[in-house]
């Protein structure tokens, strides 16, 4: 049978049309045959989301972003996207932007609402998840955390500086100073020993946080976020401890200062050079008096005479 031109041309055109439509759907990440439905969400910050980025539910690609633009009415970011019609996006669902902008791997994560809730209608609006994801968190809190770390280090520095000053005071009673320093060091040591567990806990937490970052793709966002919160709290605690340590050191320092300056009974008893000097000068006086008496007895005897007259 000879196939007519009309038939051949028609078949070619139809085939091309089908390939075109399926091809576009394939690269748009749409299911080839199932239909999709459109949704939108309003963000404060799109975090680098662009059309074509994937939409995921529990780590499964279910659609892609159609449009991202700044709404002229609200000034917020309007994100339009579509998902597979088989995905039941119900009331209570919320969307979050996640991924790393710099690596170009931004996506829209959709957290489904309860199954029995009513379905969000075609073109409807999906709520936006509260709080950003882990990376947003870190980015947002970085300055604050750095400030804290910095103040902690400052405190540590001051403590060390003061200790140094104390050690380099030459006119102090060396032994007692050393003893005091020793005591202070011991105190510091015991303090650090007490904190050791906590520090190792901190390190462990940091390690876990890093581990969490690694397993980011496994959708542990919220957990990691919590870890960062823990880390933050821990650092804050560490900060407070160090401030306490600083205060303790300062008090110690003040105490030692006082001892050095001869203030208080202990100081007067143990550490007052003027006593020695006074005793010394008294003995000297006596010595000179005796010598004077030997050379000039008359002077003293005259005096004695005067005494005799009485």
């Amino acid at each position: 049978m000879r196939i007519s031109n009309e038939l051949k041309v028609g078949l070619t055109i139809i085939t091309a049309t089908v390939i075109f439509i399926l091809g576009v759907r394939y690269f748009e990440d749409l299911p080839l045959f199932a239909t999709t439905y459109d949704l939108s969400a309003e963000f404060d910050n799109a975090g680098g989301l662009i059309p074509g980025n994937t939409v995921r539910v529990n780590g499964v690609n279910v659609g892609s972003v159609n449009e991202v633009y700044i709404s002229t009415e609200t000034g917020k970011v309007e994100v339009k996207f579509h998902v597979d019609r088989n995905i039941s996006v119900t009331e209570g669902a919320y969307a979050k932007v996640s991924g790393i902008d710099a690596l170009g791997a931004v996506r829209l994560d959709l957290y489904l609402g309860p199954l029995d809730a009513p379905r969000i209608p075609e073109g409807g609006r999906v709520a936006v998840g509260d709080g950003n994801d882990i990376f947003g968190d870190i980015t947002a809190r970085a300055p604050e955390m750095l400030e804290r770390v910095s103040s902690v280090l400052d405190g540590l520095d001051t403590v060390l500086l003061e200790t140094g000053t104390m050690l380099s005071q030459p006119e102090s009673d060396f032994r007692s100073t050393l003893r005091s320093v020793n005591g202070s060091v011991t105190e510091l040591q015991s303090l650090l020993a007490a904190e050791r567990n906590r520090i190792s806990a901190i390190l462990q937490n940091v390690e876990e946080a890093t581990g969490s970052l690694k397993t980011l793709t496994s959708e542990n966002g919220p957990a990691v976020s919590k870890l960062v919160e823990d880390l933050s709290v821990t650092i804050a605690t560490l900060d407070r401890e160090l401030v306490g340590l600083g205060q303790a050191s300062r008090s110690l320092n003040v105490l030692l200062d006082k001892i050095n300056n001869g203030e208080g009974t202990l100081g007067l008893l143990v550490n007052d050079p003027s006593m020695y000097h006074k005793m010394d000068s008294t003995l000297d006086g006596i010595n000179m008096l005796v010598l004077d008496f030997k050379t000039n007895p008359g002077k003293y005897l005259g005096e004695m005479k005067l005494v005799d007259l009485f």
């Binding site: 576009v24 690269f27 074509g52 980025n53 791997a105």
Partner: peptide, 11 residues
């Protein structure tokens, strides 16, 4: 990779 940067207007 193709999907990541696919723009529906391109085709």
């Amino acid at each position: 990779g193709a999907r990541e940067f696919f723009q529906p207007f391109d085709p």
